[in-house]
Design a protein around this nucleic acid. Structure first.
Lengths: 218, 218, 218, 218
DNA sequence: AATGAATGAGCGTTCATTCAT
DNA sequence: CATGAATGAACGCTCATTCAT
């Protein structure tokens, strides 16, 4: 095989990950073999192990790319000013839909993304990928808190959840709903799952589904 | 090995699954080998394949047991009369906590339980386990609709979600939240995640987090 | 690949070793890969690892076969009565030639045979092959001592070496000579290495090359 | 890495070989990697391939050093005049012991030294190392013939072996014996291998072990 | 029906060697 | 020249699955 010109390791990591992603998409993650990745990426198998610890790290590298993509998108959404009530709702829903799109477009990685990772961040010889995933996970959580923060400032949202609770409530609920929605949608669309379900559900998370807001049975 | 006396296949399936579950718990699902399951269950390795299509089916058999357990518990909860407002909230929270306990006690299976399964239910030679999981999944969904139904009847819950939407909203959101909660709790408890978070979050799903209930930006 | 009928492990070991030996002969030991052995033996690679710990053990199994072959031959030679002086010499030379033939016919294994093996015989999970090699090595040494014993009894040989010394003297010297002879013979035959060298050398070991036997400078 | 000042290739070869020898001693030949040699020698890995054809040549370079060392020692021994009978025996045994010491001190290389090398000396692009080994091998053989020559001249040794036969007889037998002695000595010393074995064995090669010298059964 | 034996497939790894700079 | 980077080739090993009895 022709040697390639010297490039930064990050370039090689990206090349390899690109090949891996293609194969994951095409044949599934389990069924994709390291040899195939090497072949498609046009690297020797041994070279893969220079740039990644193992197949798992390749997978998580791809996961991380998708996390970054989502983060970029979400940051873009919240960067716009949100100083009006109407605008806040718009932003909130945009974020929800961005998450939904992520789940729809990256079904292979979405679970891992929201699971972030089970990682001992302080293990010194932990591959960088895992640290980065953790860091990006924190960034993503921050998005939810920023958004809710603004809702509180605008007098829209009750101040009853702390910031980290907010992140957990919204990330947990939204990802749970879109995950389930995506998994069932092919099936349900036949039966008839209204298109409007998701926005109603997202608003339900802040609006609630009570007839009156007065229930304090917590 | 001495022939064991003739027993119903279901007995063998249960024996094998019991051994598998022990090992899954002890060493994790991936790390548990079919050989070990066979050895612990005291069957020949090939015999496992008489009673299960493959290792996956063994796993899903166990998953199904846990689904049945949860279903029994949830059914027990909603069977009690729920004719008062206070009672309805109690029941609702009991259900939420039952789901949370399930996530806490069966972390290995919870994801698979809520993913139910990606299954073409009409495939004629699909192992029975998968059909049963599907059926039990439907039963579980029914619990949510029944509960919400009563909330509507009691005048507590808005009638804005159809039945299947309700199931998706609640199952999605609740499982999403408890999943995330469990995954982070060890980490957060150190930092300080309030004990009261979960009940507040569960009520938030129906109550919403709006200052006033009047937002109709859907 | 067609499954084969149940056979004793020793049969499989022999099958595999036969294939290995063919390949060793044809391409050299280092260049022979485990995959090739499996292919030629018509077994799956994994099966090889059922019957042998690794490539090394396959090699040593073959070595052991050759040791057994030599042992059988040598035992056959010394079993014949050796009660006369002339007969003793005959026997002695036959043994020497048998060793030489072994070196000539099994050049790939001869070194390992005489190195016997560097083995901690008391390691409990040492593959059987290594124990067997050790045992056969002891048997081979015994041959030398038996033969020299008879020479002493016949009044031919001085009693100046203990039995284990005898074994070492003869095995060391004879194998050293035939090894060197074989390595050089192709080269020397061109130049002219007399055919009669080996018998003269073998007798030299007992006869010595002194003009008179009277040197006692030890 | 900083460029080192221009030095003769032989200096680089020596540097590299020195590093290799250290590692061979410490971890064994097979277990020593080219990377390690390069690192210890403080050269780039690829640079090793500028000065040596491959890892094997590095090994044989070291072998050759040891051959030269032995040759120097043996030449020193035979250079001294050997004009008396007693002196001849002394010299003979000194040579034998020098060989034994070589085997004892350079166990990693001794086999290769006496195997000299399997080399087509006329291959034009054969690395120099192999030619040198061959040449030094011839020098070493000459030592044996010189010594025996003198024994014949002194009337001590029968003239029944040609010169090249003599070399083969003595080198073969002596190296065979010391090799076996070294390999077994740790084991035998426990049991009890007399210290005097080696000199008796060496003398046996010329003296023989016959009760009377009169056997002419060749 | 029950099973031991055999195996295909692939992972993780090592390492000598080569190539482009 | 000197070299880091890339790699082919193989080993050792694991394991779910299947087949012949």
């Amino acid at each position: 095989m022709a040697r390639r010109k010297k490039e930064a390791p990050s370039v090689h990591r990206a090349n390899i990950a690109r090949a891996a992603e293609m194969l994951f998409e095409r044949k599934g993650i389990e069924k994709t073999t390291v040899d195939e990745i090497a072949e498609v990426a046009n690297y020797g198998k041994a070279t893969l192990y220079v740039y990644f610890a193992n197949k798992d790290e390749i997978f998580f590298y791809v996961v991380h790319q998708h996390m970054l993509e989502l983060l970029t998108k979400l940051n873009g959404i919240i960067e716009a000013e949100t100083s009006t009530v109407a605008h806040w709702y718009e932003t909130y829903l945009e974020i929800c839909f961005a998450i939904h799109n992520c789940c729809k477009d990256s079904p292979l990685y979405f679970d891992a993304m929201i699971d972030e990772i089970d990682v001992a961040v302080d293990d010194p010889d932990l591959p960088m990928t895992y640290r980065e995933i953790y860091a990006t996970g924190e960034e993503l959580e921050k998005v939810a808190t920023i958004m809710m923060d603004r809702g509180v400032e605008l007098g829209l949202i009750k101040d009853s959840l702390s910031y980290s609770e907010t992140a957990m409530y919204f990330w947990g609920a939204i990802t749970g709903i879109v995950r389930m929605y995506e998994r069932k949608s092919s099936y349900y669309n036949q039966i008839g799952l209204a298109e409007s379900f998701l926005p109603r559900a997202f608003l339900g998370l802040v609006n609630g589904y009570l007839v009156e807001s007065g229930a304090e049975y917590a």
